[in-house]
Design a binder for these strands. Structure first.
Length: 280
DNA sequence: ATGGCCATTAGCAATGGA
């Protein structure tokens, strides 16, 4: 099963690129961020007419997340409120449409668009930190259901210096400050998740986002801020995880490239099968 | 170069993104 996450920076502007990506990369489940469109006018027919199932949680101009899936999407949950059932500390935190979750092939996929935070002095930065803490509470409730968990999306945080083209300039600033790094790392540790990209690739110069400005793409000056996290059970079944850098070179590209993980799923008994074979 | 790009908006200037 091939799962991809992609911040498209407007689904309507990127519509043809999304269609082409789905087809050429043979994606089973595409998780989108920054769709920037209200639910009433989400272009769902384009995908449904090709046999895909579509779920979305959007708003005008900003934010917005969506699933496009070959397999049915069930038990779809919208926003942090969808899991917290009124336990959310401040309901305004959910005004921005940044979370959608669904069961696909028995897999729980939580698709998030973490706030950017603007700068360290901004109220938006406080919101970013609080939002990640609420996401952790949400995931703590989610894990009670004992579904195999995949958390993915645009996290707007580079976890390590090697995830930034020029760390000595960026360190301490937005997307690279200690507080936001530690807040996200704390979530990952406590929910027992793992950054699957780093299972396969340890090196720097693996970016998922390149600024539109300063010819960042041409100079290959990017950041790795789009992540796929898996629970231990799914980590065992990961076959590969790659960033589809080519997509960033499209005409009129999004500033993000898709990240893709290939899972032995739902055929996850392969390990047992290999054990059986070795006994022969 | 902490300005230089891109997307959106009852829209031609302002705001947000990262």
């Amino acid at each position: 099963m091939l799962i991809a996450t992609w911040n498209v920076n407007s689904i309507r502007t990127r519509l043809l690129q999304v269609e082409e990506f789905l087809e050429k990369a043979k994606i089973d489940l595409l998780c989108l961020q920054e769709t920037k469109v209200e639910d009433e006018i989400f272009p769902k027919e384009i995908f449904e007419n090709k046999g895909f199932n579509v779920s979305f949680h959007g708003q005008k101009s900003y934010n917005g997340v969506a699933f496009i899936s070959k397999e049915p999407l069930t038990d779809v949950r919208f926003g942090l409120q969808g899991e917290l059932e009124n336990s959310i500390s401040d309901k305004r935190i959910d005004d921005q449409k940044r979370v959608i979750s669904a069961l696909v092939n028995g897999l729980r996929v939580v698709n998030v668009y973490v706030p950017n935070g603007s700068n360290l002095e901004s109220d938006k930065y406080k919101y970013k930190i609080e939002w990640i803490k609420e996401l952790k509470k949400y995931l703590e409730l989610q894990t009670l259901r004992e579904e195999p968990l995949c958390l993915l999306g645009d996290f707007n945080i580079a976890l390590e210096d090697k995830d930034i083209h020029t760390p000595e300039r960026a360190r301490g600033g937005i997307m690279a400050s200690n507080l936001e790094r530690e807040t996200l790392k704390n979530l990952i540790k406590d929910i027992k998740l793992e950054d699957v990209f780093r299972i396969f690739e340890q090196g720097s110069y693996n970016w998922s986002w390149w600024d539109y400005r300063h010819s960042a793409w041409e100079k290959d000056k990017g950041w790795r801020i789009d992540h796929i996290y898996l629970c231990p059970q799914l980590i065992k079944n990961a076959k590969s995880c790659v960033i589809n850098k080519k997509i960033r070179g499209n005409e009129k590209p999004s500033d993000h490239a898709p990240v893709m993980v290939d899972l032995n799923w739902p055929d996850y008994e392969e390990e047992d099968f290999l054990d059986f074979e070795s006994e022969l």
